[in-house]
Simulated assay, not measured.
Amino acid sequence: MANIGIFFGSDTGKTRKIAKMIQQKLGDVADAPVNINRTSLDAFLAYPVLVLGTPTLGDGQLPGLNAGCDSESWGEFLDQLAGTSLSGKIVALFGLGDQQGYPDNFVSGLRTLYDAVISSGAQVVGTWPNEGYEFSASSALEDGEFVGLVLDQDNQYDLTEERVDSWLEQIKPQIL
């Protein structure tokens, strides 16, 4: 088992592709990405470092049955995580959103994931600047920065690899 576990929720498969890209760039220190609906709490907790990814659906929701997805995802997994300690774990977050289609809730699902891991005692690393995006509101902002890497595969897919590379260079000293 590698030191870094990569877990993602997805509705369309875009978040899965980014998770795979991150794993390939990290190499052997990270295990293959796992859809959050295909893991157990024990397997999740086995990693000292977690890279967690999510899209934002509808009006700022995480993927899951309550968001109209066909299968369970973060919405259900966070129920299992509640009350579990992530103390001593380092967590890096990435989120996908559509700044033109959903400018009032751009990547807001990322905030829900952030709040869940923070309230469980995790140390979150890898904030991301909000420059270069056009949106009205996002609950994923904290002190003017996003709580994790933000990608827009619908409108700025050409910037994805550059953003992932830059973010990974930023967090490597904390996760390796």
Rank of each mutant, 00 (worst) to 15 (best):
V49M: 03
P33I: 00
S119F: 05
S119M: 11
A46D: 13
I18V: 14
D11F: 15
G5I: 09
E131W: 00
A19C: 02
L159S: 15
S120R: 13
L113W: 04
N155P: 13
L52C: 08
N155I: 07
P173L: 09
S139M: 01
P173K: 03
L110V: 10
G64E: 08
Q156I: 11
K89V: 01
L149E: 14
P63T: 12
N105Y: 11
D28W: 01
V29T: 04
P129D: 14
A122Y: 05
L176Q: 12
I36N: 13
F44H: 12
P63G: 13
D31Q: 00
V51S: 01
G132M: 12
T84R: 11
T127P: 08
L81R: 04
E161N: 07
G27S: 02
A30D: 00
D154E: 15
V147E: 09
G5P: 02
G75H: 05
S73D: 15
G97Q: 15
R38I: 02
F146N: 14
S166F: 06
D158E: 15
E161R: 02
V147G: 10
R38W: 05
R16Q: 14
F8Y: 15
L41S: 04
Q24E: 04
V164L: 03
T84N: 08
D11N: 15
W74P: 03
M21L: 12
P33A: 08
L141Y: 05
T127N: 07
S71C: 11
L45P: 11
I36A: 12
T56H: 05
N66F: 07
L45F: 08
G58H: 02
V107I: 14
T160Y: 04
Y157C: 11
A19S: 02
L149T: 14
L81D: 04
G60P: 07
G101N: 09
I36E: 14
N130P: 03
V147H: 06
Q153L: 15
T39W: 06
G88A: 07
N105D: 12
L62V: 12
I6F: 00
A82W: 13
G60R: 07
D79S: 14
S166Q: 13
D31V: 00
